[in-house]
């Protein structure tokens, strides 16, 4: 048992995966000596060597493209994209190559690759450092997309993603890296990777979040004076595991989905559509979405106005309850 941050959980999870499987390689900008700009790979190059923890040239398309080649030869590359906004030079490789390799080779060429992306805002950064590109990947068949919200999940989910034979886009809420601590029991049995989890029980309305917004939802649920809110951490965005959400909505009749990404065509839209199909007669109000307006990420001095916060979540809950 140890008390860890998300950064530490991910670091320990990566270490464990590398110990367990010699085919696991890490690659990215500054992941070696520096241990990554967020120190997620801290100490790994020292212990596993430069062949397994690879500082790459500054070229994201190159990183993902060469990782494809390594995966074709049986390696399990784990890539770090330094910030969410810098994944786009690799977008072509990810969407056209990584995502489709298994399909077009009819399973002969699996792509057991993990692409780690620190995502989301709230760290006072300059532009391109605070984005939430999850829907762009979840929209692509062939990619799996998950997001951890807490240190313990970070530890287990990164290992499970690495063990997965499909390419996994692994979204890490950077704002949480060094925030809260949690107790990790390395002997526990984790839930399967592609499952959602109810993290707080409630009866009046359901809040759904993932990554950074799970904490926002939990804080909102605690702050809500007159209503009892259930909170679900999606954890997996593609495939979606909405069973727990359906169960919850059948009881509460009200659902608010919260993400930092734009509301327009965001994950909330998909969740809303499916819940409407599955739980139509249980719904007491339309499914509401809390997320970013359709403006680019703003200058950091006003980012808290743009990001969903406790008030915006509770405002949506009120609207759902009053409906």
């Amino acid at each position: 048992m140890s008390r860890i941050t998300l950064a530490k959980g991910l670091n320990a999870g990566l270490r464990k995966a590398m110990e367990d499987d010699p085919k696991v390689l890490l690659m990215g900008e500054d992941v070696g000596k520096l241990g990554g700009v967020f120190r997620i790979t801290d100490g790994l190059q020292k212990d596993f060597g430069e062949d397994r923890v690879i500082d790459s040239p500054l070229a994201e398309s190159g990183i993902v493209g060469t990782a494809v080649g390594m995966a074709l030869r049986g390696y399990r590359p784990v890539i770090e994209i330094q910030f969410d906004g810098f994944v786009y030079p690799a977008y072509d490789q990810i969407v056209c190559q990584v995502a489709k390799m298994h399909y077009r080779s009819r399973g002969r060429s699996p792509m057991p690759m993990v692409i780690r992306i620190p995502f989301g805002g709230g760290i006072g950064a300059v532009e391109h450092h605070s984005e939430s590109p999850e829907a762009q990947f979840a929209h692509t068949p062939g990619l799996k997309v998950v997001s951890c919200s807490n240190p313990v999940d970070g530890y287990w989910m990164i290992q499970q993603a690495i063990a997965c034979d499909d390419p996994v886009i692994f979204l890490e809420p950077k704002r949480q890296y060094h925030a809260d601590k949690a107790d990790l029991d390395e002997t526990a049995t984790p839930a399967p990777l592609f499952t959602s989890r109810t993290v707080r029980a409630g009866t009046d309305a359901t809040l759904v979040g993932y990554g950074p917004t799970v904490k926002t939802c939990l804080r909102a649920a605690e702050a809500a004076e007159d209503s009892s809110l259930e909170v679900i951490d999606l954890r997996t965005l593609s495939p979606l595991d909405l069973g727990p959400v359906y169960d919850s909505v059948r009881r509460t009749g009200r659902l608010v989905v919260v993400h930092e990404a734009h509301v327009n065509l965001g994950m909330g839209a998909e969740v809303a559509a499916r819940v409407t199909e599955e739980c139509f007669y249980s719904l007491e109000a339309p499914v509401l979405r809390v997320g970013a307006p359709d403006t680019p990420y703003p200058p950091s001095r006003v980012e808290e106005e743009y990001l969903p916060d406790l008030d915006r979540v509770l405002d949506a809950v009120d609207r759902a309850l009053e409906y």
């Binding site: 500054d30 070696g32 520096l34 500082d55 500054l58």
Partner: peptide
């Protein structure tokens, strides 16, 4: 380039 020397 941050921590990476020109040789990279």
């Amino acid at each position: 380039a941050i921590s990476e020397p020109i040789e990279r």
